[in-house]
C-alpha cells in the first residue's frame, strides 16, 4: 500500500491532536477554563450535600450521590464541549481551508476531535474529582470499575452531541456557535441526573429512556443506594450510544459534505 493509499492515518490524527496540545501549552486560560467550572460546580454541590445530609433522608443514605451526579453530568457536558470547542478553534483561526487541502480525511478529523475531547474531559473532571477528596472526603474513584463504564457511556454520548453541534456550526457558520453551549442543556432535565426517571410525567419517560445518560444515572443511583451494579442499565446505555455515536458521526460527515457543496470550508464566518 502506497503512502497515498492509507485511508486512516494515526499520524494525521496525531497531527491535529498535536496542533491543539500546542495551543493548550501556550494558553493557560484555556487550561484553566477546563478545570474551573467542574471544580466550582463540585464545590457548590459539595456544600449543598453537607447541608442536605443533615436534613434529607435521601441524601443521608449515600452522601456522595449528588457529587457523583454532578461530576458525571460534567463528563457528558465537557466531552461534547471538548469536541465542539476544538472544532470551532479551527473555524476561529480560519484554518479549515489549509487542513482540508492536506490529505486529512473528515473521519480522521472526527477521530482527532474525540481524542482531544477525552484529554480535555480527563483534565477538567479529573481535576475536580481530585479536589473533592480533601475538601469533602468524597472519592468518586471508590465506585471502582462501574465508574469506568459510566464514564465511557457519558463521554460517548457527549461525543455524539458534540459532533452534531460541530456539523451545525460548520453548516450555519459561527453565528450558530452558541448551540455548542446550550445544546446539551435541552436534554438535561430528561437525563435523570438528580432524580429517577419515574419522577418525570409518564408521557416523558419514554423520551428519557431513549437517552443513554438516563440509564447511566439510574445505574449510578442503584450502585450508590443499594450497592448493586445493574448490567441491564449498562447494556442499554451502550446500545443506545452505538446508535447515537453513529448518528453523530453521520451528521458531521453529512454537514461536511454540505459545506463542500456550498464552499463553506474557505469562507468561514458568521
Amino acid at each position: 500500500m502506497s503512502k497515498q493509499d492509507i485511508h486512516y492515518s494515526p499520524r494525521r490524527i496525531g497531527a491535529i491532536v498535536l496542533r491543539h496540545l500546542y495551543l493548550m501549552r501556550t494558553s493557560w486560560p484555556r487550561v484553566l477554563e477546563m478545570v474551573y467550572w467542574p471544580t466550582v460546580q463540585m464545590i457548590l454541590w459539595g456544600f449543598i450535600t453537607l447541608f442536605l445530609k443533615e436534613n434529607s433522608h435521601y441524601v443521608a443514605q449515600a452522601a456522595g450521590i449528588l457529587l457523583s451526579a454532578v461530576l458525571l453530568w460534567d463528563v457528558l457536558f465537557r466531552s461534547q464541549l471538548g469536541i465542539a470547542l476544538v472544532f470551532m478553534e479551527e473555524m476561529w483561526s480560519r484554518n479549515l481551508g489549509h487542513l482540508f487541502v492536506s490529505p486529512l480525511r473528515p473521519y480522521e478529523m472526527v477521530s482527532a476531535l474525540i481524542v482531544m475531547s477525552l484529554i480535555r474531559t480527563l483534565i477538567g473532571i479529573g481535576g475536580a474529582a481530585l479536589v473533592a477528596i480533601p475538601l469533602f472526603h468524597y472519592n468518586i474513584f471508590d465506585m471502582g470499575l462501574p465508574l469506568i463504564a459510566f464514564f465511557f457511556n457519558l463521554i460517548a454520548m457527549g461525543w455524539a452531541v458534540g459532533l452534531l453541534v460541530s456539523g451545525i456550526v460548520l453548516r450555519y457558520g459561527l453565528g450558530a456557535e452558541s448551540v455548542a453551549w446550550i445544546a446539551v442543556f435541552a436534554i438535561q432535565p430528561l437525563c435523570a441526573i438528580y432524580y429517577p426517571v419515574s419522577t418525570l410525567p409518564h408521557w416523558l419517560q419514554p423520551v428519557a429512556w431513549a437517552l443513554p445518560a438516563s440509564h447511566v444515572f439510574e445505574g449510578m443511583r442503584e450502585l450508590l443506594l443499594q450497592g448493586t451494579f445493574n448490567m441491564h442499565y449498562l447494556v442499554n446505555a451502550m446500545l443506545l450510544n452505538i446508535l447515537y455515536l453513529g448518528g453523530g458521526i453521520a451528521a458531521f460527515l453529512g454537514y461536511f459534505r454540505a459545506a463542500r457543496r456550498r464552499g463553506l470550508l474557505l469562507q468561514i464566518g458568521e
Binding site: 494525521r12 497531527a15 496542533r19 495551543l23 480560519r94 484554518n95 489549509h98 486529512l104 474557505l266
Partner: peptide, 19 residues
C-alpha cells in the same frame, strides 16, 4: 486562508508536515 495565530512557525510547519 490563515494559519493558527498562537502557534509558532515551527509548530505550524510541524503539524502540516505530519499531515
Amino acid at each position: 486562508v490563515d494559519l493558527p495565530q498562537r502557534l509558532t512557525v515551527r509548530q505550524n510547519l510541524t503539524v502540516f508536515g505530519h499531515l
